[in-house]
Structures are given as C-alpha cells and as structure tokens.
Nucleic acid binder design. Structure first.
Lengths: 264, 264
DNA sequence: TCAAAAGTGTTATGATTACACCCATGG
DNA sequence: CCATGGGTGTAATCATAACACTTTTGA
C-alpha cells in the first residue's frame, strides 16, 4: 500500500449533495495538447478527472476555479462550463466496489460495508451524482501539477493517449474537446493555452493541433487578425537566419472574460 | 384565498436535493413567439417557470421531459439543456419570505417558522438551489396548458410581454432565447414549433419572428432547402388566387433527436 | 549573397445577396 | 385574363482560398 498518511474520510457536510464539478484541464506545448489527470492513491490503477463537491456558500464557477487552482497552482484560470451529465445510472458503484475489493483496509478489519459509519459513507458515495463539466485552458509552463490528498500522482497526458479513467470521465474529455473546437472560429480564448506573448506561427500550430488540420499561412494570419482580439507588440523576436516575427498578446481585459458572464 | 384543495407540502424525500430543473416552454403561432408560464396558487402575484426536482432514479433529461409533459399534455417534446446557474446567492429566500408574509396560513395559526416541521421545510427551501435550464419547442396547437397542483393558472405569454417572475426566471428565458437563436443557422430543430406540415412561407415567418429581422424570399428558400433536413410532400396546398405552395415536414427520425445524444 | 521564413498583396474560387422572370390559381 | 404570390434562375457582390512576391535575418 503506497499511502503514508491516513486516508481522509470525505464528509457530506457543508457540500451540496449529489453534485460534483469535473474539470478537464487543458495544457499545450510543442504541438501537443494535454490534459492534467491525477491517479488515485488507492491500490489498483484508478485515474479520475480533478473533481470535487460544491460548498454551500460557493458559486459553482468558483468551485471549478478552486478545484483547478488546487491542481495547477495558478490563481485565476480561464474556464468554461460545457455540459451537465445526469443519467440515473451514473454512479460510482462499479468503481467503488472494485476500489474496496482492492483496498479492504479502507473500511477497517472489523468494520464491514454493512456496519455503521462505513455503510453510511459508502451509501453516500454510491448514490447517483450529477456532474457539471468545466474545462480550463492553462499555460503549461506556469502550471505546477499538484496532488490532492487523494492522489498518488498527477501528470499531463497527451489528449490522444489518455489513461482509462473511472466512470464516464473519458467521454467527458471528448465532449470538452468538442466544445473547445466549436469556439475556435470566433473567439481567441484558446490562446490562454499559450504563454503571455507568442508569435503568429505558434498560434497557427496551436490551431492545427487542436483541429488536426493544416492552414495556409497567409490566410491564417489574416483570419486571426481580423478578429481584432490581439495586440501586436512592436518589439520583435530574435531567432536566427530569417525575418523576425512580431509578438502578440491577448489584451488584459479579455484574458479573464468568461468568469463573470451571465448567471452561472 | 383562492385555494380550494389543501396545499401540498413538498418533501425532500426521493429527490436530489438542492437541484432543480427550470423549463422554458416555447410556443409559436401567427408570427408570435410565446412562453408557457404558470401563476402560483398563493396570495400575491407570483409567476414562476415550470420547475421541479429530479427523482433519485431519473435521468435529468427525463425529469425535464416529465415536467414539460405535465404542463403541455404532449408525451414527447423536443428539448435542449442550455445552461446551469449556480450562484451561491441564488436562493428563493426573498420570494419565500414574501410568500409567507402574504400566506400566513401556509405555516398554520399555531406553528411558526421557528418551530418543528415548519422550520425544517422552510430551511430546505431557503437553501441555495442549482438550476439546470431546459427549453422545449412545442406545437401550440397540440399543447393543452395544464396547471400543476401548485398553480392558480397557466398561460401563454408573448416573449416580449412576460410577467415578472420569481428569482432569476426572467433572465433564464432571455438566455434560452439567445441559445435558441444560436442554432437557427445550422439546424431545423426550431421547426418543432410548427404543426407537422407547413409551407416555406410559414418557416420564413417563424425565422423572422425569432430573429426579428426580414429575409429575402428566394434566398431563404434556398438556404433552408440546402440544409437537406426537410421532406417535400408532393401534395399541394389549396388556398386561393395563386400558385399553391408545397408542404414540408421534418422527417420522423429527426424529430426526436437531441434526447438521446451524448451523456446528459 | 543565399536560404529560410515572415509579412503582405493579388488573383481565383465559392458562397451569399439582390433581383427578375415565369407559372399556377381563383376571381 | 388579370392580380397575387410561389418556385426558380441569373447576375452582382462579398468572403474565403490559393498562390506569389518581397523583405528581413544570420550564416
């Protein structure tokens, strides 16, 4: 058993019951789109999206922000709510049964799942959960992956090589990617995946990676600039052996848009 | 007091707590877009969107379907989930305080809000609720507005002349309309607002009403037909004094799409 | 001075818009 | 046989795509 500290017992107190926030944290570097996925601290290979409950006195957007902050170390993250899943048969029973089978010490040598506190906790977790999905776009260079007390490890996984996750978490990532792609045409929010300043070539590579198709260089530049969402910095880049490209950045006020919109 | 039957007491049992489904039921007739809004059976003028909790063994989509069915009498309705609102300060306290002020008999002459059962019920309702918004598109000719046991009346209101509703329900309608408009370009789902068969002119009038702008007749026809989502019926219309228009209909399999997609 | 890649311009293509023409229908 | 409105065709306009030309940079 790899655990070194006592395993925390989750209480239903102070949380909205049967409601979770599941977060898909996207990162990008070198033509590779990744998702930050923790592995749980229990025996058996359990991967699960960063996920938590909502405090009674907390906005759901704020809860998502808190969850993402705790895993990336970044105070304010760009995020979008993208779906709610609430199938009646969506519960963690299959996962929990296997978890307990492999981790009998969880309920102690004498206590069984049928007795007292153990049973109560177990029942709380095996009820159906409604899940609100959020995705975040973070700068992989700034993010410092952090385990929660429930994690054994946490890592960036290429979007095409995700580990098998519990419940419907793989499907949630697929949906998040789909929703991310939908907005690419009209918004520049996706540039929150890049460092603060970047060249047009980097933008193009990002788009090509996410949409998995090539763009024509000249037209791409015109398209992006026509959205009027970028500031061109007059200083130039110093690389080697050719004309230096301009650097661009998202204007400050735009960076955090999306948090405070409408009445989530 | 207009009530004739005892007012029902809602119990938290069997429902997912602190989660509601709020429904915007759209109807359309004669260049007028309407929303079906019930008025509550209590003293004071309280209007509220059709809304209910989710049973423990029920999909959230199914819950929305049930709520809409109970108000329209239509078994299967076209519906879309469009947002989740979950601000921490989103509770019905202001509404409930006023409701109780005007309806003292709700808690009985002896019981007070501070005692026993009354207090427990009251606390349940004044906690914050997370609301999942759904909109439905129904054929106003088929729908038979039905009161629930909580309603004094239920009526179609022109989208531009909605009554003031409790909490953030007016804002929810605004958001629903916005989301409905977004899809108009690429999908024909909106035609679920029309009777089973319709002419192209009726389609155009519907679009013009929802988007509040005129379209050129010839181009509109080409645009809609280019979506390849309509069946042209070979029989023609009999009106008067001019060429008879074709009738169209949505093909059956398309009609109910949207219920079973993805993992809501 | 040359290769590489960046910035920008120019033409070709396709989609959308504006408009016109003809036809069915009932009075 | 005329007025009305429906179906469809054609030309003009706009947006996008394909491609080319020029410039900057370090070797």
């Amino acid at each position: 058993m790899p655990t070194t500290q006592p395993l925390p017992i989750l209480s239903e107190q102070n949380y909205i019951q049967q409601l979770t926030i599941d977060c898909v944290i996207f990162g990008y570097r070198a033509k590779q789109l990744s998702v930050l996925v923790p592995k749980l601290r229990y025996e058996g290979d359990f991967w699960a999206l960063p996920s938590w409950f909502v405090f009674q006195d907390e906005d759901i957007d704020e809860a998502a922000q808190r969850i993402i902050r705790s895993r990336t170390g970044i105070e304010e993250n760009y995020l979008e709510q993208f779906q709610v899943t609430g199938k009646a048969n969506r519960n963690g029973k299959a996962f929990l049964d296997r978890l307990i089978e492999l981790n009998s010490e969880l309920i102690g040598p004498t206590a069984t799942i049928n007795d007292g506190e153990g049973r109560r906790e177990y029942e709380w977790f095996t009820r159906r959960f409604v899940s609100i999905g959020y995705y975040a776009l973070v700068d992989m260079n700034k993010a410092i992956p952090r385990k929660s007390e429930l994690d054994q490890s946490i890592e960036w996984y290429d979007i095409n090589q995700l580990p098998p996750m519990i419940m419907d978490h793989n499907a949630i990532v697929t949906k998040a990617l789909e929703m991310l792609r939908l907005k690419l045409d009209q918004e520049l929010n996706v540039l929150n995946l890049l460092p603060e300043t970047f060249t047009m070539k980097e933008v193009q590579e990002l788009y090509e990676t996410i949409l998995n198709k090539p763009f024509e260089r000249g037209n791409f530049q015109k398209k992006i600039l026509s959205l009027n969402g970028l500031e061109r910095l007059e200083k130039k880049y110093t690389g080697a052996a050719h004309k230096a490209p301009y650097l661009y950045q998202l204007p400050k006020p735009t960076l955090y848009e999306g948090y405070t919109t409408d009445c989530h």
